[in-house]
Design a protein around this nucleic acid. Structure first.
Lengths: 145, 145
DNA sequence: AAAAAGACTATAGAAGTAGTAGACTTTATT
DNA sequence: AATAAAGTCTACTACTTCTATAGTCTTTTT
C-alpha cells in the first residue's frame, strides 16, 4: 500500500501543477484545499523541494510552485522519494537493492525472478505516468497512455 | 514491500511443492530448511491450510503437504491471504475495495485511474504465476511465462 | 499410555507510519 | 528598522502493524 505521505505528495504536485502560471501557493492553502494535515504537508513539500521538484519562496507572497514541467515529473520518482523502493522485495529493487535475509542463492531464486517481472510491470506504468498525465486523466475519460 | 509472512508462505509452498510424492513434511523440518522461525511458520501454514491450499495431518508421521497442484496455486491468491490487497491504494483494489479517506471524487480521480493500471500490470504477473512456475524458474534460466 | 505431531489463542517486542510542536530563517511591507 | 508572512529544520510522540514467541489443547500413531 502507498503511504499517506506518498498520496499526499502526489496530490500536492497535482494541485501545484494545476496552479501553474499563478502566484505560488502557500502550504496552508494547499493543506486546506487537499485536506492534508498542515505540518505533515510541510515535511513532504520540503522533501520534494530538496529533491528538486519544487521551488519555494519565503516571506510574504511566498509559497510553493513546481520547479519542473508537470510532464517531466514521473510518479515512479516521487514514490521513490517518499516510500523508497518500488519493488516488492529488496533483492528485486533497481534503486534500493538489498540482499534478502533468508535467501540462499539469489541467482537461482524463482521468487526473485518473479518479482523482478512484477517490478518491471509496475515501472512500465509508474515511470511513464507524469503529473501531467494524472491531471489529464482527472477530466478526460479517454486518455490512454 | 512484501511482508516476511508472505515471503515465508511462498517459500513454504515452494518447498512443499518440491516435496510432492514424499511423506508430509513437519513444520520443524520446513522451518529449519527454509530458515523460518518455527512458531511463525506454524501460523502461516495454518492460514494456508484454512484457505484450502494445504493438507495437514496430526500425530506421528504427520505434517503438511499441498492440497492442490503446484500449477494451480497462484501467487496473487497467496499474497491476498497473507498481505491483503494487491493494489497500492484501497480504492483501486479488486478484492479489498475501500474508499480513500481523502478522495473528493473517485470517478474522476486521476491517481486512482493510474493505480488501477498498476494493479492490472501487477496482477498480470502475479495471477499467472503459480508455485509450479516459481519452482521451474529456480532451476531453468530460460523459462519465460 | 506415551509420544509425536498439528491447532489455536494470547501476548510481547520491534519497527514503521502519521502526525505534532516549536524554534529558526528569509523576505516583503510599512 | 520593525513587523508580519511565509518557508526550514529537527525532535518527538502516539499509534498501528509486523514479527515473533509462549503455552495449552487436540488428534493420531505406536
Amino acid at each position: 500500500m502507498l503511504s499517506k505521505k506518498t498520496k499526499y505528495a502526489i496530490k500536492a504536485l497535482v494541485a501545484l501543477g494545476k496552479n501553474t502560471g499563478n502566484p505560488p501557493m502557500q502550504i496552508v492553502r494547499l493543506a486546506e484545499q487537499e485536506m492534508i494535515p498542515r505540518k505533515f504537508l510541510e515535511q513532504i513539500l520540503l522533501d520534494m523541494r530538496n529533491a528538486g521538484y519544487l521551488y519555494s519562496k519565503k516571506g510574504a507572497g511566498g509559497g510553493y510552485s513546481l520547479n519542473k514541467e508537470p510532464g517531466d515529473i514521473y510518479l515512479a520518482d516521487i514514490l521513490r522519494i517518499t516510500d523508497g523502493p518500488i519493488a516488492m522485495v529488496p533483492c528485486a529493487s533497481l534503486k534500493f537493492y538489498r540482499k534478502c535475509d533468508e535467501c540462499h542463492d539469489e541467482v537461482t531464486c524463482g521468487i526473485r525472478k518473479t518479482f523482478i517481472d512484477v517490478r518491471d510491470a509496475t515501472l512500465k506504468v509508474l515511470a511513464q505516468t507524469s503529473i501531467a498525465d494524472v491531471i489529464a486523466r482527472e477530466t478526460d475519460e479517454s486518455i490512454v497512455q
